[in-house]
Design a protein around this nucleic acid. Structure first.
Lengths: 230, 230
DNA sequence: TTCATACTTCGATGAAGGTCGAACCATCAT
DNA sequence: ATGATGGTTCGACCTTCATCGAAGTATGAA
């Protein structure tokens, strides 16, 4: 009865409300200090410290010391993807427990998934890249030469990206759209570029991403929404 | 701090060892009775009953009465996918906690993921279908006319499949290969066909799928392993 | 050094929940 | 009907673990 890997261990890690809040906060993509996370989770610093130690031990978050601060971030894209999946199931059979306010609609439209863009617009971008042949899905998922040109046009420096170890491109599943969007280091770089270009602004203390009017126009021009297959 | 859906709720459902064992057993794809699941989980029928009620309430499993028996199955492909994701993370940073025996190798090669084929060979099949144009990944994932011909050739009855509501094709992520393979009702139908054709046999009380010699030969002929992109 | 801040460790408290024995309901067989 | 089997409900026990107060360590500032 104890076949595969120990899924109960990590599931129980996420199963505590305080830890779930911590992880949700880290889904914002920015590294946060232990004290900040304590605030997010609504517990005292001692308790948060204990939780963070467990999350670290479990491989869900990674610490980074800086001076007398200790910053935490999600350990990997896979952790982020798993949390998205959980959110999807919870939302799906939510019994309308989570009343969907305006914040919720904004989240579905565009939000940050750990370090890249997610939501309706992210799916649009992914589909557009595939449709114009920038991404190749035949064996795994790879960036085509044409895709490299597209990225260069947007000002994404691929050379330094390739130096990093994490996979350049990776697909990530949306809980709202239930469709793939672009993750990996390329996804992160693109989102960073959107910020630099002023296309988007992050909403403080939330995962919501707001497009400026001009930014949305340029985004739609760069990644036109493809026609749905009949 | 309480933005999205309540992920802690379902995570804690999976977080209990007994419930995790139950869910793992159901990953085999066959519906099991409450008593059988109690055995799998290593608890008495009373406790299993309590656990199953919680899992049902949480939307992770669905019951089906038959006479005085009550059969349980996973609620959806998404639940199966989530469990696979958890297994992936647990295996990934397993600290070699799970010593990988011969059983493990077989699981990586071919296993059943709720109701369809997963593992190395499943990824091979998925890639092959994409490469020969049977599946189209441009907008979402769809079966092309060519793909319909392929399925007909294998003896899969698409007409009755389309009548059912669940999505015909769906991609599912492997924890061992970390690649997409074919899920959805088509994935289930294909796996059922493999059983009918005698290509594969299920190993009792486990998720392992064993190919017969002849079955593997035919499988490789039908879904040739594509050349990896350079 | 002396103080302040960020984080951790220790210990005690308390609540949540998994577990099983026993009794209770429902279905099928005889 | 009578019994047997599968499942559930109830109640009591008991382990587990989150939580916070208080004290301890480490880093930075003055």
């Amino acid at each position: 009865m104890k076949d595969g890997p120990d899924i109960a261990r990590i599931a129980s890690l996420i199963g505590d409300p305080a830890r779930a809040n911590i992880l949700s906060a880290l889904m914002g993509g920015v590294a946060l200090t232990a004290a900040e996370l304590a605030g997010e989770a609504g517990v005292t610093p001692q308790t948060a410290s204990s939780h963070l130690a467990k999350l670290e031990e479990g491989g869900l978050v990674v610490p980074r010391r800086q001076g007398r601060h200790k910053y935490f971030a999600l350990a990997s894209d896979e952790v982020a993807g798993l949390l998205e999946g959980l959110a999807g199931l919870a939302a799906h059979r939510g019994h309308t427990r989570t009343r969907r306010g305006p914040r919720d609609a904004a989240m579905r439209h565009a939000r940050v998934c750990y370090n890249h863009l997610a939501g309706d617009l992210a799916v649009q971008m992914f589909d557009s890249l595939v449709a114009e042949g920038a991404l190749d899905l035949d064996h795994g998922i790879t960036l085509t030469p044409k895709g490299e040109a597209v990225m260069a046009g947007l000002g994404v420096d691929l050379a330094t990206l390739r130096a990093g170890r994490p996979a350049l491109v990776r697909e990530c599943l949306d809980w709202s759209e239930r469709r793939s969007h672009l993750g990996g280091s390329l996804g992160r770089a693109l989102f960073g570029r959107f910020l630099e270009l002023g296309w988007v602004r992050r909403e403080e203390g939330s995962r919501v991403v707001r497009f400026t009017g001009e930014g949305l126009r340029r985004f739609n021009a760069a990644f036109p929404r493809a026609l749905e297959a009949a």
